[in-house]
């Protein structure tokens, strides 16, 4: 059986049984996504603390490994993101940063940004430059979102968690999650301006 088809749950089970190699694979698999999530959720101002939080999350995971039970609706990934999310929010709260659902510095930018989207007409090499700039702009826009909306957006767009999984990670109701996502998208689209195509629907 190849390593690539071993599920996270199998690896975690092996790790709980004392297999260090299984943990190494698990770590390798989730190292970057989790780090990115923590880093982006913390925002540009707290990037320096991302490593500490990241380490703390994994240490908590190792310590709590015996309490972990594979469930039907909660994968290992969900559990890991739950640990990472709560730890990051804790740090943000302790740092004095506002962690509210609705408030953020981002305001709807005036004008209609959809009219001047250049990417669709860009040439291939230029497309790369365009998306890179778009990404940079998006990170800037994310910093302006409230932490909970930012978390909802990141989990759904970057890490591919479904709304059901997000309910577990964010410990919120289904409707609350959807609402946060919609708010986040609305604000981000407005912030992205020229880097987005016109709305189709």
């Amino acid at each position: 059986m190849g390593e690539s088809i071993t599920t996270d749950e199998d690896l975690m089970r092996k790790f709980c049984a004392g297999d260090m190699r299984a943990f190494e694979l698990l770590y390798q698999r989730h190292e970057r996504p989790i780090y990115r999530y923590i880093r982006r959720l913390m925002g540009g101002a707290f990037n320096a603390q991302a490593d500490d939080v990241f380490q703390d999350v994994w240490i908590r995971l190792i310590d709590a490994r015996l309490q972990w039970q594979p469930r039907e609706n909660a994968s290992f990934k969900t559990w890991l993101y739950t640990l990472a999310h709560h730890r990051t929010i804790d740090i943000l709260r302790k740092s004095g940063r506002e962690v509210s659902v609705d408030e953020g510095w981002l305001d709807d930018e005036p004008g209609s940004p959809w009219q001047s989207w250049p990417a669709a007409h860009a040439l291939e090499p230029e497309q790369q430059v365009f998306w890179r700039k778009a990404g940079q702009r998006l990170l800037h826009c994310l910093d302006g979102l409230p932490a909970m909306q930012r978390a909802a957006f990141l989990l759904h767009h970057e890490d591919g968690l479904s709304v059901d999984e997000m309910r577990l990670v964010l410990n919120a109701e289904f409707e609350a999650i959807k609402s946060r996502l919609r708010y986040a998208l609305f604000k981000l689209r407005a912030c992205m301006g020229a880097y987005l195509p016109p709305m189709v629907d």
């Binding site: 780090y35 990115r36 991302a50 940079q136 970057e158 689209r189 195509p197």
Partner: peptide, 20 residues
């Protein structure tokens, strides 16, 4: 409730290769 363009932008963000 995904926005495909925002997802693309996120994937091309400068910190996409960041690692601990």
């Amino acid at each position: 409730i995904r926005d495909e363009h925002l997802r693309q932008a996120l994937q091309h963000a400068p910190d996409r290769l960041s690692a601990p």
